[in-house]
Write a protein that binds this DNA or RNA. Structure first.
Lengths: 113, 113
DNA sequence: GTGACGTTCACCCATATGGGTGAATATAGG
DNA sequence: CCTATATTCACCCATATGGGTGAACGTCAC
C-alpha cells in the first residue's frame, strides 16, 4: 500500500530494465516511427509494443505526436541525464576506490624495494 | 514461455529501479555494513531488506563477505559502468540533436539579418 | 457510407516484486 | 549446554509486468 510516491527516476530506470524497451529506444535513434512500424521489428504483438511505448512515455523518454490515425514517436533522451547523473556519482566513488587500491599497491611496491 | 535470457544489464537497471535499493547503495558509500545495520536505517522489515540485498547482489552491485554470523556488505560500483556506457550513447545522440537545433536557430537568425 | 487501417481498451494468464510473518539455521558467548 | 543474535527460508498477500486475444474507436480512402 502506501503511496509509493513513484519518483521520475524510478520510471526512467524501470523503463530501461526491459531489453525490448531499450531496443525501441535504439530503433528511434535511427528515425522516428509509428507504433506499427516499431511493432514490425519485434516478434511480439502490436498490443505489447503499445504497452511498452506507454511505459517509455511515462518515463518521458518518448514523445508522441498524433497526426490523423498515426502516432509518430520520437526519442526524447533528455530524462536520461537524470539517471546518468545518479550513476555518475557512484562512478566517482568507484574510481576513488580504484585509485586508493592503486596507491596501496604502489606504496607496497615501494616498501618492498 | 520464454527463457527470458536476463542479461546482466537488465539486472543492473532493475536493481536501480527501487528507491530503497538506491538508498542502500548510498548508505554503503559511507561505510560497509551488516544486513542488520542497513535494516536499522529503513522503516521496513529486516526480511525485506534481505531481499533487496539479494537483488543488488544479483546485479553485482554488492559484495558480501561472511564472517561468523555477520554478513558484511560493501559497495561494488563496477557494474554501473555498463549501465553508464549504455546511457552515454544516448546522451551523445541527444546532444547531437541539441547541437543541430542550435545550428538551425543560428542559421535562421543569420538569414533573418 | 463502407471497408480497411492504426491504436488503444478490456480482459486473461503466468510470473516477479515489494511488503509482511513465523520458523529454521548458524554462530557467538556465557 | 543453553541462550541470544544474525540471516535466511518458506510461506501469505496485493500489485505490477510481460505476453496474449478480441473488441472498440477513429480516421483515411474509395
Amino acid at each position: 500500500m502506501g503511496e509509493r510516491h513513484e519518483s521520475h527516476l524510478d520510471h526512467v530506470f524501470n523503463a530501461l530494465c526491459d531489453p525490448t524497451r531499450r531496443a525501441i529506444l535504439a530503433r528511434l535513434t535511427d528515425a522516428d516511427a509509428r507504433v506499427t512500424d516499431i511493432a514490425g521489428d519485434f516478434p511480439i504483438s502490436l498490443n505489447s509494443i503499445s504497452k511498452h511505448i506507454r511505459m517509455l512515455e511515462r518515463a518521458g523518454l518518448l514523445r508522441r505526436s498524433i497526426v490523423g490515425r498515426d502516432h509518430m514517436l520520437s526519442l526524447n533522451a533528455g530524462p536520461l541525464s537524470e539517471a546518468q547523473a545518479w550513476i555518475e556519482n557512484y562512478r566517482r566513488f568507484w574510481e576513488g576506490r580504484l585509485a586508493a587500491l592503486d596507491a596501496y599497491v604502489t606504496r607496497k611496491n615501494r616498501n618492498r624495494r
